[in-house]
Design a protein around this nucleic acid. Structure first.
Length: 807
DNA sequence: TGGTAACAGGCT
DNA sequence: GCCTGTTACCAC
């Protein structure tokens, strides 16, 4: 009675997006379980692909869709399930709701190290006459997938295969590498060592030293530790092992990214009344296992983190685990240390700064129940925690919680799903909640928890709005108003620090000819190339195209071609001319690309190695330095001009957030906001830090425009190399949707996307706004299914539910 | 008619 | 995504 495994194969296409049945070989019958990775033969060529077992049936049953002979699966890649039943179920739910392939959702749940890769290997059966081709093979094998072959080489190899000189072999690579460490166990007791000593020569110093070490270390020790603390080398221990003095064993170890640092333990702080009330409400829900979502609204400095920490402690006290999500950018050492300081080794941290190996190790610690608290960015929403008692999402309004490529999921939705599954409360925290969440709190779907006061009763820093139009009238092209410049000088005199934020969106350096107005553009995309002074090149931020900076205008051959705009580089340059001795740390996508660079820059700033921290949005969150008394926003309104209904919300959130960075300790702070729209409500209300008012005003705007939270949205994008193909298909689709969807649903478009061409593909989009559309799931699934057939003609269709950006 | 290139169908 | 069998087209 053979078992049958239901397998999702690692072939991300519409047609293969369903389980396939495989025979389980009898020797694996007891070993195969749902949630394990396997290697299976797929297709006629006998190629091997990776797959995930999602179910095991006891008995062969007649399958309604397939009547052929089942193939046996080739290999089992795991000894224990890497996805538990909860996560398997979640992957299914996520796939249907985000219109993603099941295998893609499964892959995003696993650490990268567990992603299988299938390789095609060419094996030489006879000697190859051509010397060049023969040279490609090592030991009669060539990894066709990994090798970078020229088209003519591929062609010639195919001919060799046809004539039977080589044949193809397939293998599925399992990249999960467990790090091991050698441990030393003394085989001699202290008494025996005394006996052994006279038997070795007196001048065998290394052996004598080794015996000294063994005398003091009778318990097993890591080899690395012993070689570090003595003059002995690995070879001395291997020699000792040969003599039978010690045994060497390999033990599994974790790559602990925080191992070296000692983190000071922190104790629970005394809560003020509002905090205590919030903790009590959350703790109540944990104890009664109620999946109640809470919206914790508190201004910067009102002590939200302490509420999280004490609620997590309550979950742990119940013998449960806790999951805490923070935006990637807020995962600073400061934040991580705070959680680690409270919960110590029980904490696992997941973020993009870790190497694949480190991530895998943290993941395994969670999976093996060695970590009960998980802190991480978006993808940590899938942490393999069992028995979750509490889920926290800090800065719930952050757009980075939505993944902008497939699967296009929002971590908040994932958390709410998991909370239901585990009967655990969810705490969504923010100083400036998203309108969607706040509206849900209004309707009682989320329970509202308020922290209206700052700890220490500290007043919020005064915010000055500077009208940059005045500056423009004075005919200066400077990025700095006189007021802001004076404030900066004052900090320099006092030895205090400043933070300057540049709203990067749509605001980078480009090259333009002053004679003919020519702007250097990307040959593949409809965007201007961006100047990068660090590499001295012009780069395209969409396709990666790179070229040298022109000295002569390619259009009119004038030499008057120069730089425009205001990237952080240019601002830094201007700052150095205005304030010659100033020390600046620049923080943007370019300076933080390298692993650990982000942490290093922040540490340097914290250690007062610079006077000014100049950066993009990434500096708005989570920084807390006592000597920062000035925060300046150079261009508050660049985002306001964007054709996106969330522009005001984003601007308000950003300004409110960055203002909170000034004067958090005993020194009072000051905030300057430079803008060309000083009368805009988002800026005026951010100045007053009045979220409540902003919420009311913005809700009115959304109501007028039929936008979220009054309507749901979906974005359908089609792209093709031929602009006409994309456009024509989208016009057809719009007609189709009009016929199938209800009258209350608004169909906007199709329109070309604001960047109509990226990487030589043309993009068209349709936006759906709907209130109630019971068949939407089916209709959109069919849209994708139909599009599959046209993919060969180069058409790609994508669906994004509740997109965070419409441009 | 043979040889190749482009295409459509199917994968358990 | 990749493999294969089929078809279309051209040179002979």
């Amino acid at each position: 009675m053979a078992k049958i495994a239901q397998v999702i194969v690692d072939v991300p296409t519409m047609q293969t997006n369903r389980p396939y049945s495989y025979l389980v070989p009898s020797e694996l019958a007891d070993a195969v379980h749902p949630g394990m990775r396997v290697s299976v033969p797929f297709g006629k060529g006998g190629r091997e692909v990776g797959g995930m077992v999602i179910g095991v049936d006891e008995q062969a049953q007649t399958l309604p869709t397939f009547s052929g002979k089942l193939k046996p699966l080739t290999a089992l890649l795991d000894l224990a399930s890497v996805l538990n039943p909860e996560l398997l179920e979640l992957s299914d739910w996520l796939a249907t709701h985000t219109f993603a392939f099941r295998i893609s959702t499964i892959q995003t749940m696993l650490p990268a190290a567990l992603k299988t890769k299938s390789h095609k290997l060419l094996v030489a059966d006879q000697s190859i006459a051509d010397a060049h081709l023969a040279g490609l093979f090592t030991n009669g094998q060539l990894d066709f997938t990994a090798a970078k072959l020229a088209p003519n080489e591929v062609d010639q190899l195919a001919k060799l295969q046809q004539s039977g000189i080589v044949h193809a072999d397939y293998a599925v690579e399992n990249r999960a590498k467990v790090k091991t460490v050698t441990w030393v166990q003394s085989q001699l007791t202290t008494d025996q060592i005394v006996d052994v000593r006279p038997t070795i020569r007196a001048n065998a110093t290394k052996q004598q030293q080794l015996l000294d070490v063994l005398t003091t270390c009778q318990t097993p020790q890591p080899l690395a530790k012993l070689t570090e603390n003595s003059a002995l080398a690995r070879a001395d221990f291997s020699a000792a092992a040969k003599r039978g003095w010690v045994t060497l064993t390999e033990r599994e170890s974790y790559r602990d990214p925080y191992a070296q640092k000692d983190i000071a333990a922190t104790r629970a702080m005394t809560l003020h009344a509002d905090q205590a009330a919030a903790v009590a409400a959350i703790t109540g829900a944990i104890e009664s296992a109620t999946p109640q979502p809470f919206l914790l609204e508190g201004v910067t400095g009102s002590g939200k983190t302490e509420v999280y920490l004490q609620s997590i402690a309550a979950a742990l006290a119940q013998g449960k685990t806790a999951l805490m999500l923070v935006p990637e950018i807020a995962l600073t050492p400061q934040m991580v240390n705070r959680v680690r300081g409270r919960f110590g080794k029980q904490v696992a941290v997941l973020h993009s700064g870790l190497s694949a190996g480190e991530k895998y190790d943290e993941w395994r610690r969670i999976e093996r129940h060695e970590a009960a608290v998980v802190v991480g960015a978006r993808s940590a929403a899938f942490a393999p925690l069992d028995n979750i008692g509490l889920i926290v999402m800090d800065e719930e309004h952050e757009t980075s919680y939505k993944q902008d490529d497939n699967p296009r999921y929002h971590a908040r939705d994932v958390l709410l799903w998991r909370a239901k599954y585990h009967h655990a409360p969810v705490v969504l925290g923010s100083a400036t909640p998203s309108l969607e969440s706040r509206a849900r709190a209004e309707r009682g779907v989320y329970q509202s928890l308020l922290l209206p006061e700052r700890i220490n009763q500290q007043p919020l820093p005064p915010v000055t709005v500077i009208d940059m139009r005045e500056q423009l009238k004075a005919h200066t092209e400077s990025n700095f108003s006189t007021a802001l410049l004076d404030a900066l000088k004052l900090r320099l005199e006092r030895g205090e620090q400043s933070v300057l934020m540049l709203n990067r969106r749509g605001f980078s350096s480009f090259v333009m000819c002053r004679d003919c107005g020519f702007v250097l553009k990307c040959p593949n995309c409809d965007v201007s190339l961006v100047l990068h002074m660090d590499t001295h090149t012009m780069k395209c931020h969409y396709c990666g195209h790179e070229e040298t900076i022109p000295k002569i205008c390619p259009n009119c051959h004038s030499r008057r071609i120069s730089y425009y705009g205001s990237g952080t580089e240019k601002v830094a340059a201007e700052l150095t001319t205005l304030l010659p001795d100033v020390r600046i740390i620049r923080m943007d996508a370019d300076t933080t690309r390298r692993k650990g660079a982000y942490e290093k820059l922040l540490t340097d700033f914290g250690e007062h190695k610079a006077d000014i921290l100049l950066g993009t949005q990434m500096i708005a969150k989570g920084l807390d330095y006592p000597d920062v008394t000035l925060v300046g926003v150079l261009n508050a309104d660049t985002a306001l001009g964007l054709p996106d209904f969330r522009a005001s919300e984003r601007t308000f959130q950003l300004l409110t957030q960055v203002s909170g960075r000034a004067g958090r300790a005993d020194k009072p702070g000051e905030v300057f906001i430079q803008t060309f729209n000083p009368d805009h409500y988002a800026i005026q209300l951010a100045q007053k830090q009045d979220y409540e008012r902003f919420f009311r005003v913005e809700m009115k705007m959304r109501h007028l425009g039929n936008y979220p939270p009054y309507y749901y949205t979906a974005l359908i994008t089609a792209s093709a190399q031929d602009e006409n193909v994309a456009a024509r298909r989208m016009f057809e689709l719009a007609e189709q949707l009009k016929a199938q969807l209800s009258d209350t649903t608004v169909i906007l478009g199709p329109t070309p996307r604001s960047i109509a061409r990226i990487n030589n593909r043309y993009y068209y989009q349709i936006v759906l706004k709907y209130k109630q559309e019971p068949h939407l799931q089916t209709v959109l699934a069919k849209v994708l299914d139909d599009a599959q057939k046209e993919q060969r003609q180069g058409l790609q269709v994508a669906i994004d539910m509740e997109p965070q950006s419409f441009i």
